[in-house]
Design a protein around this nucleic acid. Sequence first.
DNA 1: CTGATATTTAGCTCATTCGCTAAATGATGC
DNA 2: GCATCATTTAGCGAATGAGCTAAATATCAG
Lengths: 102, 102
Amino acid sequence: MRSGADLTEGTAEKLAALDAVVAALAHAARRQILMTIHFRGSASAGEIAGRFAHKWPTTTRHLRVLEDAGLVQQERKGRSRVYSVDKSRLALVSEWLGWFER
Amino acid sequence: MRSGADLTEGTAEKLAALDAVVAALAHAARRQILMTIHFRGSASAGEIAGRFAHKWPTTTRHLRVLEDAGLVQQERKGRSRVYSVDKSRLALVSEWLGWFER
DNA sequence: CTGATATTTAGCTCATTCGCTAAATGATGC
DNA sequence: GCATCATTTAGCGAATGAGCTAAATATCAG
């Protein structure tokens, strides 16, 4: 640990991860997608795309953003891709919010 | 309460507020600004602007975004404006994260 | 009132993001 | 292999966002 490190600073990797996560959560559609997958346990791209007003390719890209942020994982199951939520990355946000507690 | 309401849904106002808050937090500079104000208790626009690489007007606009999201409050003190953090809006984020708990 | 200080507002440019449609990929069934 | 189904990738146009400089506003000191 570097001496004199700013309290508000984490490791560079963590900062980058937080940034990606918060940016991914910044779009309402992506928050909804995350919720949808979470409450269903998992869902195929088609099931997700079917629930939203946007066209499928648009949803696909939202999924990509969520995946790049580490918020969802993908698994090929035959010709469909099944997505599930990786909650651990959400902890980065809680952790950041923790600085403001009390 | 409307029957059959989606669990992932809140009131329209709350959703809009959450959206503004998350969007405001999506920018690293704004997160840093929020931290800076929080740990100092309060800070004038000049004190804040002085700590960041960006030009003052850029920081001013970030402050505006934070204020519009209800994350900071402003008070005129002579010719300076003193900002302080309003933590209550951050609770919206924690609340949203709560859907994913356990 | 005049000048200085603190901060915001206006307006511009560049980059990114979001939606779309059309085309490409990859797996399955015959 | 050929057709089909599920999904992604490519690429475009419009909208938004972030940075900047220059000008405006507001308060205080004399």
